[in-house]
Amino acid sequence: MLLENMEPVVKKFYDGVAEGKYLGRKCTECGAIEFPPHLGCNTCGHGETEWVELSGHGTLVSFVIPGIQNDKPYLKEIAPYGYGAVELDEGPIYTFVVFCGKKKIVKGLQERLHAGEKIGVHAKPIQRVTPVKPGEPETIEWSELCFELDEAVEA
C-alpha cells in the first residue's frame, strides 16, 4: 500500500473522531468491517472497501490493568483505566484504553468478564496535545479514541 493512499484514510478516521463520528471501512466483497479503517479487507483480502459510520457502542471482551512500565499519567487524570478488547456492535474487535469510572469497578472487572457477563462500553474520545518533535515547543492537538464502561456513567 502506498503511503499517499493511507494518509487520507488515517486523517479521515481522526477527523471523524474529533467530530464524534466513528468511521470504519466495509468490504464490498464480504461485508466485513475494518475498524480502525484499512484500505483492504483483512477477512477476505479484497482490495475495495467503502466508508461506514459506526455507532461507537459495543461490549468489553477482555480487560487488563497496565503495569508500571505501561502506565500513562495523563490517562489517570481522567479516570481509572485499563486496556481492553472492545467488540463493536457492528462486529469489529480492537484494543483500546477503557475508562472505568471508579477504582471499585476495576477490581472485579476481569472476574465478571470471565464469568461471561456482558459489559457495555461506548466511545469516549479525549483531547491530546503532543509535541511535533520531542523537546520542541510546537504541538499538535488531536482526538484519541478511547472507550468507557456504560456503568461508569450510571454510577
Rank of each mutant, 00 (worst) to 15 (best):
F35D: 01
Y83F: 15
K76I: 02
V61D: 10
E19K: 06
E29V: 06
E136A: 12
G135H: 03
T28G: 01
C146V: 00
Y81P: 04
L145A: 10
G16N: 09
V97K: 02
G58T: 04
E111H: 09
G47H: 10
V61Y: 07
W51V: 02
V153L: 07
L109W: 09
I65H: 10
L88S: 07
V98H: 00
T28V: 09
I140G: 04
N42L: 13
G45D: 11
A32F: 11
E111I: 09
E53R: 01
V98P: 02
N5P: 08
K104I: 11
Y94S: 13
E7W: 15
V64W: 01
E111T: 10
G135N: 09
F63D: 00
L113C: 02
T43I: 02
T139D: 11
G135Q: 07
L113V: 02
L3C: 03
A79I: 06
H38Y: 15
L2C: 05
S143R: 03
I33H: 03
D89M: 11
L88T: 04
E34G: 05
E77N: 07
K72F: 08
V86I: 14
C30W: 13
M6N: 10
K133Y: 10
P125T: 10
G56D: 12
N5K: 12
V10E: 09
L54R: 05
E50F: 01
L88R: 04
P137R: 13
C30M: 05
I93W: 05
E34H: 03
E34Q: 14
V86S: 00
G47S: 09
E53V: 09
A152M: 02
E7D: 11
E138C: 04
A85R: 01
I68H: 09
K11S: 13
G45P: 04
G56S: 10
E4K: 15
A85S: 11
K76V: 04
R128H: 11
E48Y: 12
L54A: 10
E87S: 14
I65C: 11
L109F: 05
V106Y: 01
K12E: 12
P37T: 04
T130F: 14
V64S: 15
A115R: 14
T130I: 15
K124V: 00
C146P: 06
E19A: 15
V153M: 00
G16V: 09
L2D: 07
Y83P: 13
C146N: 06
G120S: 03
C100N: 03
I65A: 11
E111L: 08
S62W: 04
G47E: 10
P92S: 08
L60H: 02
G45Y: 14
Y14I: 14
R112H: 07
K118R: 10
I126C: 07
E148W: 02
T49Q: 09
E111V: 07
Y83E: 07
E34Y: 07
K21S: 07
